[in-house]
């Protein structure tokens, strides 16, 4: 009773199933990334263009510059804050630690989008007036 005989002795169903499962999981590995909403990450946009993208769970400090000014973004323990902004009102600094949503620095034209940019949950609003 050799291995070769055993392999030859498998039914067509066995073989179809094996190839099917391999194929499905193989496709799955490549497609799941596309289908899944992006995980939690920090996207920093300067003047409307994505300038930096970082995972939210990696601690780091980034200095971001635009034509209008600069600010320093600190990512730590899944939260983001602006530590040093060149703008006069420093609204973004006062916002403190943010774990989801956005920090926007209008004078410097820099926006920091925090958390998964997935579709809003049911019950969430699409926009807010006021």
């Amino acid at each position: 009773m050799s291995l070769r005989e055993t392999i030859n002795g498998t039914t067509a169903g066995d073989r179809v199933l094996f190839i099917f499962l391999l194929l499905v999981s193989f496709i799955g590995i490549f497609f799941i990334k596309e289908v899944l909403p992006r995980g939690n990450e920090v996207v920093i946009e300067v003047e409307g263009r994505v300038a930096y993208e970082y995972p939210l769970d990696s601690d780091r400090t980034v200095k971001v510059e635009s034509r209008y000014g600069h600010l320093t973004v600190e990512i730590r323990k899944g939260k983001v804050r602006v530590v040093d902004a060149s703008c006069p009102n420093k609204l973004c600094e006062h916002q403190g630690w943010v774990s989801s949503g956005a920090i926007v620095c209008l004078p410097n034209r820099i926006s920091i989008l925090v958390g998964s940019q997935e579709k809003p949950k049911d019950g969430a609003v699409d926009a807010t007036a006021g």
Partner: peptide
């Protein structure tokens, strides 16, 4: 899931052949 299923499929094949033998 897909990674686990792929590894499981290969392991399943090995186990199945062993069981057959």
């Amino acid at each position: 899931a897909p990674v686990l299923i792929m590894i499981g499929t290969i392991a399943g094949l090995v186990n199945g052949l062993a069981a057959d033998l």
